[in-house]
Design a protein around this nucleic acid. Sequence first.
RNA 1: GUGGUUGUAGCUCAGUUGGUUAGAGCAUCAGAUUGUGAUUCUGAGGGUCGUGGGUUCGAGCCCCAUCAUCCACCCCA
Length: 462
Amino acid sequence: MKPSIPQGNRDFGADKLRQRKYITNTIEAVFLLYGFEPLETPAMENLETLTGKYGAEGDKLIFKILNNGLNNPAKEQVTREGIENILKGKSDKNITERALRYDLTIPFARYVAMNYGQLTMPYKRYQIQPVWRADRPQRGRYREFYQCDADVAGTYSYFSDAEFACIYSEVFSRLKIPVAIKINNRKILYALAETCGLGEAMQSLVIIIDKLDKIGLKKVVEESAALGLSEKSIEILQQYLMISGSNAEKLAAVKKLLGNNASGMKGIEELNEILSLIEENFKESPVVVDFNLARGLNYYTGTIYEVQAKDVVMGSIGGGGRYDDLTGLFGIPGVPGVGISFGLDRIYDVMEELNLFPETLQQGTTILFLNMGEKESRYAFGIMQQCRQLGISCELYFEKAKLDKQIKYALKRKIHFGVIIGSEEMESKEAVLKDLNKNSQEKIAISRLYEILTNHKISREV
RNA sequence: GUGGUUGUAGCUCAGUUGGUUAGAGCAUCAGAUUGUGAUUCUGAGGGUCGUGGGUUCGAGCCCCAUCAUCCACCCCA
């Protein structure tokens, strides 16, 4: 049998993993800096926990898990009926009742609802785990990918909304990725929908507006007209879509357009408040007001965020927002939440394309002890164990081979030093320490070897 | 889910209107060189041409299906 892995899934070798860990370590460090604590949830959730949370399209993309024991003769009748339901496009508990998680927000909501009594509110957690979507893979889209989420449950404070913008800003500046952090407020979009006479049908308008960048103003107007908007409404929509300028200018313009609407006023007020918090603390704020930012997920109620990498063609590399009824669907009403997500895999792709990974990431083991023969390598093994006691990562070339080959092996493995202890050095209690990066070497006493390597280790840790 | 692209050695790729035994570079291994990363030279191994069918005297090449890849749509991180 020829080995293979399922479509849209990937293995990660050492080089890539070191780069990925660099990204997640950076994100995690910032999450911790802002006072979030870790959480992990299972790869699978009960199917009913997930369905209906991501819209009709989202439901189709949930990876479902087939129940075991479908061939049980005692259950043949219900199984057959279940299959019938599946064929009709319905879900059936007798066939599938579990699914792989689709994002980290809903499992978080589920966790908060299940542990509401025990959690200290506001509860701030971060979570870095893979999620799965049955999408067709393409550029920047995978079937298994990592999200790095931070959310807070149990506070209406705009400090938290503002903090998430700061987290985005901090992380991307540490990673040296140029980004635009877009911010908007759902209440403003709701006001627009209301003013256009749509009210409850807001979701369809939201999806159209979201596509502005891609399909252009003309198409957006066309599609909105198809929703049944009056001419006057379309006029308002066009004015709305064309709002531009600085953040302050945009806010002023939208106030003029939708300031009479109660929801609109509230949204503008929130946005103003959050923005002032951010701008007072960043000289050059990467946060940009974008009223055309919509986001498809329908649980958002206030602030929404999306992060776009500059100079690269790539979908959003992060997104999030406020949802004022986080746990309502799980029986605990009145718990607000805000949160953001980083798309690790897309961030990776962007950094790869812009060549932003530091080269120092690819440093392997510190030392390779070269094999100089049977007696010599036995001796070297002992020295090596001493080094390991000192916390220095090292390995011994197991086989007796030509030095040429051993050195090439070390270079490929990105090992920093080679140590040669042949019969001569054994006699004199010395070693040849070879810096493979610099292509230089010196003969030193074994005791000195420990000293040099310990210093080297400390300098790398700083 | 819809549409398109590509698939030949470990890697990157040639391969003529369908015609003998499918090639190159790099990499690997062995030797020139039994204590040192380069260069050079010599030699070797490695392919059921993604998989399964079909057309044909004959298929890497044409047809169908299937799997994977990349890309666009939908949607999204």
